[in-house]
Write a protein that binds this DNA or RNA. Structure first.
Lengths: 248, 248
DNA sequence: CGATCCCTTGATATCTGTCAAGGGTTGTGG
DNA sequence: CCACAACCCTTGACAGATATCAAGGGATCG
């Protein structure tokens, strides 16, 4: 498997862990043949972005694919309203744009300083035509994305605000490259507004519910971007599904 | 292109159009090589289901794929709550289960009498390995599904009830095989509860808003399953995005 | 003709959005 | 090193949309 150097992240957002210096570029059990990985890296370039920068814009031609090395990105859609919907947050190890065919279905905006590989879509197309593992890899990614979107639809359709935030926090625990799956600490590289736009709420509601959770000793809020889950059992209970009804 | 006979639908739900006798099995501009289509049909069997019957269950192994000839199916997830979320409604021409890899991410339930082809997943796998057009077809389907789910996430996250229903009605117009794209008539093979579960609302709200639309002369409700859009411009205005705010 | 299922309508409760004001933190410039 | 601005977060009061609860109506089926 191809290995790349990884910059340490977290100048801007108070981070407690330093990431290790080396990580495999293809993570999450998605094994790709070493040779193919090499081709992919050799035909790609590396670039850094600053917080707030937009990398790709919804609706434009899909010319490049991204592989995040460090930092966090939001995949979102701006509505005519001035407010927006965030489909997902992507962190180190994520692949962006692999799942679309002709044009981007989202706008990618940097939440922090971001370091990534840019892979030309044409390269990927050639690789996909010729290498079965790459093809399977992409199809698996697409399939996972659909499963995840189904979950998110269920969340938005039937979960109340507390349940949405509990699910959000629990999912954050597992998202991206997490080297300590038993950790109770979560970094939130995104703002309250971003969380609200992801969960179909407002920033005020997000803020209030975080405070409620803190009062109930379910979480500790160290700062805006750093939360400790003090009582994961409670969070799990709040997140679990019979709690939809107003009465609960 | 391979052609199959199509049964007329609509014994149960008052339908105004009879579908033509012959339709191509692969529709929506998804051209598949005739030979491949033939292989697909030859290795599949045809079956009928009654309203309410469950064809595949969420979480079980993906053994069969479905191609709907006539009738309507809901793709849904039962929550522990007793209520459920409907991801999508599928009608004639739809492909079900093509987008998943290992197991079903939904339960498929018949809304009406359904006539369909059952294709073994193993057959599809072989075809995909050997035929580029099939592969492209599946990837395109997956990509479309992701785009559609993104739209639905945006709807659930940021649209109010009236807007959701306007979007729903406008989308119904184009869904499935629609031979008269200028038609103002819509059939609703699903119940109010099903619509509510699709849009993240309750049946009461759906019912009330339909009545409101009727009072405002935007639609006429012929019966539960038959609606005429009297004022598509108004519907479009209600559905368009600046109307999210409560004040509007 | 009753049973069942779904739809409709009304009264009420409650969640969460909206509006508004203030606080904390970060960054910049004197 | 301090002042100020900008940005985001927090908190409160209030309003309004929609869920809940309840009762009744209409169609379909045996």
């Amino acid at each position: 498997m191809f290995i790349v150097l990884l910059k340490k992240i977290g100048e801007r957002y108070g981070v407690m862990h330093d990431f290790p210096e080396r990580i495999p570029i293809f993570v999450e059990n998605d094994f790709i043949h070493q040779e193919v990985g090499k081709i992919l890296i050799e035909s790609s370039c590396r670039r850094q972005y600053s917080p707030g920068e937009v990398i790709v814009v919804e609706g434009t031609d899909r010319r490049i694919l991204l592989s995040i090395i460090s930092g966090y990105v939001s995949l979102e859609r701006k509505l005519k309203n001035e407010d927006s919907v965030i489909f997902d947050f992507s962190g180190p190890g994520a692949f962006i744009g692999f799942v679309e065919l002709d044009f981007y279905t989202f706008t990618a905006r940097c939440l922090s300083r971001v370091d990534l590989f840019i892979i030309p879509a044409s390269t990927m197309k050639n690789l996909m035509a010729n290498y079965l593992p790459i093809r399977n890899f992409i199809m698996k990614k697409m399939s996972q994305r659909i499963a995840h979107l189904n979950d998110h639809v269920a969340l938005l359709a039937r979960a109340r605000a507390r349940q949405r935030l509990a699910l959000f926090l629990l999912e954050r625990r597992w998202s991206g490259i997490n080297y300590d799956r038993e950790s109770r600490e979560i970094t939130l590289p995104m703002s309250r507004t971003d969380i609200a736009n992801n969960l179909g709420l407002t920033q005020e509601t997000v803020s209030r519910i975080f405070r409620d959770f803190e009062k109930e000793k379910i979480i500790s809020i160290k700062n805006h971007n750093w939360i400790i889950m003090e009582n994961i059992e409670s969070l799990t209970m709040i997140s679990s599904w019979p709690s939809t009804k107003l009465s609960n």
